[in-house]
């Protein structure tokens, strides 16, 4: 149902009468309910890949399928959170969440929508700031509200494009734990595609990490650790560190390859 599939996807665009190829024959599958992190250096095509999954752009070759059906455009079966500006600055936190609900779950009354919005704001601990406008919120609070809106839309798929990239380390850690709690429990399992260049974040959150370089998925690393991962026992914590080291090694290797 919420399976995501990319088969031999190619994406290129015309710039200054030169063809720039961003994605080369890229294939992967995300199983229903899988938490997938896509890492890679800047400019490797991570964000482009996410835009294809979102239906905001279309591949030149190959196929992107969600739940077995080819993606024909944006849809309310997928929710997205960007690094900035996911929220509409002219709506209060509550109105932002309500707008998302109203678009994704048609047929709810205004009172039901408002109640649902408050419920999700509560989940991300933002109910106290429900009437504030985004400019009155800190970066972390804004991302909490953005997360609340995406979750409240009750989609099976969540797409995240470096959502915590602009936050400081402490807030980032808080939000990673929050995201893990909200998206990986048995009852509320979602298929999550999380784009990041933070290795620690990727290993902490993912069921599987895909490593992208030059528009291809070059390696993958399953992270088979129990959740919640904030309090792993010693042996598991060691495995987490090992996974992180391995990933770091990939990054370093590409860098030397580039230098050569």
């Amino acid at each position: 149902m919420n399976r995501i599939e990319c088969a031999h996807v190619t994406y290129s665009y015309e710039a200054h009468s030169r063809r720039e190829t961003v994605l080369h024959d890229l294939s992967f599958t995300a199983a229903d309910g899988e938490f997938l992190c896509i890492v890679g250096q800047s400019g490797c095509g991570k964000t482009t890949l996410l835009r294809l999954l979102a239906g905001l752009a279309f591949p030149n070759g190959g196929a992107v399928r969600v739940g077995g059906a080819p993606v024909t455009g944006p849809g309310t079966d997928r929710a997205i959170v960007f690094q900035n500006y996911t929220l509409f600055p002219w709506m209060s936190a509550r109105k932002n969440v309500m707008f998302g609900i109203a678009q994704a779950r048609k047929g709810l009354s205004k009172a039901e929508t408002a109640a649902l919005a408050d419920e999700y704001l509560e989940k991300v601990d933002m109910l106290r700031a429900a009437d504030k406008y985004p400019y009155q919120l800190s970066g972390g609070m804004r991302q909490r509200v953005a997360l609340a809106r995406s979750l409240a839309m009750d989609t099976g798929i969540l797409l995240l494009d470096e959502p915590f990239g602009a936050l400081d380390a402490r807030i980032r850690g808080e939000l990673q734990r929050l995201l893990e709690t909200l998206c990986t429990g048995e009852k509320q399992k979602k298929t999550v595609i999380f784009v990041t260049h933070d290795i620690h974040e990727a290993v902490f959150l993912a069921d599987r990490v895909l490593y992208m370089a030059d528009g291809r998925i070059v390696r993958e690393l399953p992270v088979d650790l129990p959740r919640p991962r904030a309090d792993l026992c010693c042996a598991d914590a060691d495995r987490l560190c090992a996974a992180r080291r391995e990933l770091l090694g990939w990054f370093d290797r590409t860098e030397t390859e580039v230098q050569v």
Binding site: R51, A54, L56, G73, P74, G75, T76, R78, A79, I80, F82, Q83, N84, Y85, T86, L87, F88, P89, F99, G100, Q103, A104, M153
Partner: peptide, 10 residues
């Protein structure tokens, strides 16, 4: 990003 965010809500 605002435009994309809006388009995602169809």
């Amino acid at each position: 990003q605002i435009l994309d965010s809006a388009r995602m809500l169809q």
